[in-house]
Each structure stands twice: as C-alpha cells, then as structure tokens.
Design a protein around this nucleic acid. Structure first.
Lengths: 218, 218
DNA sequence: CAGCAATTAAAACGTTTGTTTAACCGCTGA
DNA sequence: TCAGCGGTTAAACAAACGTTTTAATTGCTG
C-alpha cells in the first residue's frame, strides 16, 4: 500500500465518520480501523487530530470553492455582456446549487455528506476549524454574498445580511439532515424526495425569503 | 446548601456550558467545579450524564411548550369566534416568537441560550435525546405545524413540510449563533441588532418563504 | 439528645482518549 | 552491497473521562 493510499483511506473513513457522528464522538481508533491502517498513521501523516479535521474540510471545500468561483465568474461576464438584464435570484441560487453539486458528484463526493460536514463546521467548530475555513475560503464566500447583494439592490444591507444567514441556516440545516427529514416525510406522505427535487424546492423558497418586502417599522 | 440548590446549581452550570461547547466537549468535572458542587453529585441526583442532559432540556422545553400550547389555544378560539378572517402567516409566526420569548424571559432563561441548546438537540443528539424530545414534546410540535399548515391551504403538503424544515433551519441556525452573527454585522455596518429586531426581520422573511408560489414543474 | 435517612465528600475504579516511542520493513542511490 | 530514509507497525504513555464505592457529614424526627 503506497503512502498516497494510506492518506486517502484515512480521509475517506474520517469524512464518513465525522459526518455521521461528529468530531469528538469519532475516535482515531475507529477511523484507522475502518480505514484498515495503523493507529499511528494519523499522527504521522497529519500531525494531530485537529489537522486531520482540517484536511478533511480542505479536500471538500477546495474543489467546491473552485466550482463556485468559476460559476460566479461566468455569471459576472454574462452580466457585463448584457448589463440591462436583471438576474433572477432563484435562478442564481439554483444554478449555484447545481454547479456545486455537480462538481462534487464529479469527484465522487456525496453532496449530502458535504452538507453534513458543513453543518458540523458551523455548530461544532470551536476555534481552530472556523479560523481555518474563514482564512482559506472567506474571500469566495464574500464574493458570492456580494454578487447576491447586487442582485437585490432594493433590500436594506443589514436586512440582506440577516436574510443571508437565514438562507444559510435553511440550506445547511435541512440538507445536512436530509436523510432524516426525507424519512419522516416518506412515512407521513408516502412521497419520496430526491436531493435534486429538494434543491428545486429550496431555491425558490430561499429566493422568496431574500426578496420579501421589508417589514414596515412604526 | 439544600439539595434543591445543588440540583439547580448543576442545571444552571450545565445549561451554560452545554450551549457554549456541546455535550461531549463538556465534562462532568467542568460542570461540577463551575457549579461549586462535588463531582459525584451529578450521578447521585441525575443518575448519569445522559439523564442530566435530558433534565436540562426538560427545564427549558416544558415552560416553552406550555406557553406555545397556550398561544395556540388562544389563536384557535379566536379563529372559531370569527372564522371568516384569514390569519396572516407572518403575524402568526411573530406572535409565537414573542410569546415563547417572553415566557422564557419571565423565568430568567436566556432565549439565545435556549436556541443554542435547540441547535445542539438537532445536530448533536444521537439517539437518546431525540427520542426523549420527540416523545415528550412531539404533540405540541405537531399541533403547531398543523395550525401553520391550516393557514397555508394553497401550499402542497409535501412542499409545506419541506418549507417548515427550511424555516426551522433558518430560525435555529441564525438564533443559536446570534451573538457571532451580530458581531460580524456590527463590525461591517456599525449597526447593532437586538434579538427582538432580528425576530421582527425573521418572521416576515420566514412567512415569505412559506407562502412563496410553487415552482412550476415541467 | 439519640438515631436514622439523605446528602455531601474524597478517593479510586476501569476505560478510552490522543499521542509518542522504538523497532522493523522495503526501496533507492551511491 | 549496503547505508539511508520514508513508511508502517506494535506497544506503551500520560491524561481525561464517566461512574462507583465508601466514609463523613448534615438535618430532621421521635
């Protein structure tokens, strides 16, 4: 087994286990025995458990962010070519969802697992992981937020940013526990929902939230 | 120190620490030393760490659910008195937010901490806590969901339930990390946001998401 | 004041955790 | 051929964990 195999086997096992149980609930012994490698291999190749966690996120977020940036550039060029045309917000969101999804699927990464990890990063990262993600992928995130803000010139900036977090919450929360929610709905209605269908529901709903009329203050 | 004091001191300390760091990241030694009680007191009064976690949620959710039920009953009676009048969804949401919030504040409980714990329950509860909450507070939740569904007769049931989870995600996610988000917005815009103001933004945004027109399928 | 049950206290229990050590293997370049 | 090095392995490390045990202490009741 080459060293490349060992590193990737650890990352594969850690990715699945972290998304299922969280970071502290997943021991290095569980990871290494699942991966079929020696316990010491984690500390040898990654240095520590924290650095392994960062490596798992790096492997996910780097191609994801690359796809995002590419799509944002494409949209920006298209906008400059025909500046008068107003972009539809739900179309923007849905195409972003689709592009990010397709990019992950192309690399054999499960999008639902990606969302599960993203949820972990927001709820279970006390310090080091949040700093790592912000410093590494913050610019792409701000570019996305800026382009979305430009498509909503009528919305007050502070209101927009709160709604952006509302939207992130709706997306990450519902997709990170997609399987559980889908199981409940299947039991209650007998209707199955694919991830694609759910994104097709989420995009217009999120767009409606972003474009809602401002609350009239007293 | 009476036994009632010991129990409440443990609950107070555990509540804060759980909301800050999560369950597994908070040790019983940290809880008991913060509370100023002996380590064994947790197992003596609660039996185990799992049962302590349930007790923390019980102390939060019981009065919260009582307030929720009371408000739902009030609305139902009001609806039967004047059945023709269509309820506004954002008004329904905002009054629920306000009632639940006021009930917690009346007992000296921090609503933001409550939301933090609620977020934990959704993302970090593997099994026992989820079962405990569903069995104990499931009926109230279903009653709330049913009343909300009745106010949205034009929305397809499956679409409604997905949007309900979108709304829950937006609410729990953004309010559980309210302080962090507010700090970012204060730095970027110099504009402070109170929890009340944020709820006044959230209610119409969530209502817009729930009442959005259905996506036209091919 | 004696006695009993409830509570608190200190100490130790066995596990599990992340990490480190040291021996060993297989390849590559001199 | 063999020294050297990156990689793997088994074993052990100290620390932290939840829990249990046993003894001391408290507060109330007869």
């Amino acid at each position: 087994m080459s060293q490349l195999d060992t590193v990737n086997r650890i990352l594969d096992a850690a990715e699945v286990l972290f998304a299922e149980r969280g970071f502290t609930e997943t021991s290095l012994r569980t990871i290494t025995s699942t991966a079929g490698v020696n316990l010491a291999a984690v500390n040898y190749h990654f240095g520590s458990k924290k650095e392994l966690i960062q490596a798992v996120f790096e492997r996910f977020l780097t191609p994801f962010t690359a796809n995002l940036d590419q799509e944002l550039t494409r949209r920006q060029a298209q906008l400059e070519a025909s500046p008068g045309e107003q972009l539809e917000v739900d179309d923007l969101l849905q195409s972003l969802y689709r592009v990010a999804l397709a990019g992950l699927a192309k690399e054999g990464r499960d999008p639902k697992r990606f969302m599960g990890l993203l949820g972990l990063a927001y709820t279970q990262s006390q310090g080091h992981l949040r700093r790592f993600i912000v410093s590494r992928y913050g610019p792409s995130y701000r570019r996305f937020a800026g382009q979305l803000a430009n498509a909503l010139p009528q919305v007050d900036p502070v209101t927009f940013y709160w709604r952006l977090y509302f939207m992130l919450g709706a997306t990450i929360f519902s997709l990170s526990s997609f399987d559980a929610i889908e199981a409940i709905l299947r039991e209650d209605f007998g209707a199955e929902s694919s991830l694609e269908e759910t994104l097709a529901r989420l995009a217009p709903a999120a767009a409606a939230m972003l474009t809602a009329p401002e609350p009239k203050d007293a």
